[in-house]
């Protein structure tokens, strides 16, 4: 069933975009579709695909692996080098050798976000990245986004309710909510 219609945007290197809209409007669906995890009913998505890195609200952390092992795994999987300052950047220096299972929710979230600094993707698709982060960690994450990612020509599409203090353009999805009688979707054949 169609969720959103008429959504269109174009981002140049160094640009970010914040997605807004009530719960259930389709922010996650939009991000997952751009990431290639589900097909769009119609329309085109260009430039993401192999260049995109996706982060959902689940961090995919394995309790049995340490913080350093977790980040090393993602670096190996993406065939990138582990940036030297990634632990400092996300305030994980003291936690390096802690099993991820012993981290608090906020610490785990920082580890999940640190993955984004490791995988070296130009287009970051972030679904509620700041959930369970304290104000200080939000500032650090905003610093990473602005001074480590966007400034180097990266692109970010962020679904979030809070203000990251980055002064990014906002796309409100509310007007794009698919009309009730919108065409498309697998149920349509049966109506």
């Amino acid at each position: 069933m169609p969720v959103l219609t008429g959504v269109s945007f174009r981002l140049s290197p160094g640009q970010g975009l914040v997605l807004r809209g009530a719960n259930g409007i389709g922010k996650t669906t939009l991000l997952r579709t751009i990431a290639g995890l589900q097909p769009q009913l119609s329309g085109q998505i260009a430039g993401a695909g192999e260049r995109a890195g996706y982060a959902s609200h689940a961090d995919g952390i394995k309790p049995a692996l340490t913080v350093a092992e977790t980040l090393r795994f993602w670096a190996d999987l993406y065939r990138t080098e582990l940036p030297a300052d990634v632990f400092e950047l996300f305030d994980l220096e003291d936690l390096r050798d802690r099993p991820a299972g012993t981290l608090s929710a906020g610490q785990g979230r920082r580890l999940g976000l640190a993955r984004l600094a490791v995988i070296g993707r130009e287009v970051l698709l972030l679904d509620e990245p700041t959930v369970s982060l304290d104000a200080f960690s939000v500032k650090r994450f905003a610093f990473f986004l602005r001074d480590r990612h966007l400034v180097r020509g990266g692109i970010a599409v962020i679904a979030t309710h809070i203000d990251l203090g980055l002064d990014l353009p906002v796309l409100d999805l509310t007007p794009h909510r698919a009309a009730l009688e919108a065409q498309g979707g697998s149920d349509e054949a049966f109506l």
């Binding site: 069933m1 009730l180 149920d187 349509e188 049966f190 109506l191």
Partner: peptide
């Protein structure tokens, strides 16, 4: 087919409610 049609109509009806 009829069961799918009922499910589709119900899903559509649910979408009306929040509006």
């Amino acid at each position: 087919i009829r069961a799918r049609r009922i499910a589709a109509l119900r899903a559509r009806a649910r979408r009306v409610e929040p509006v």
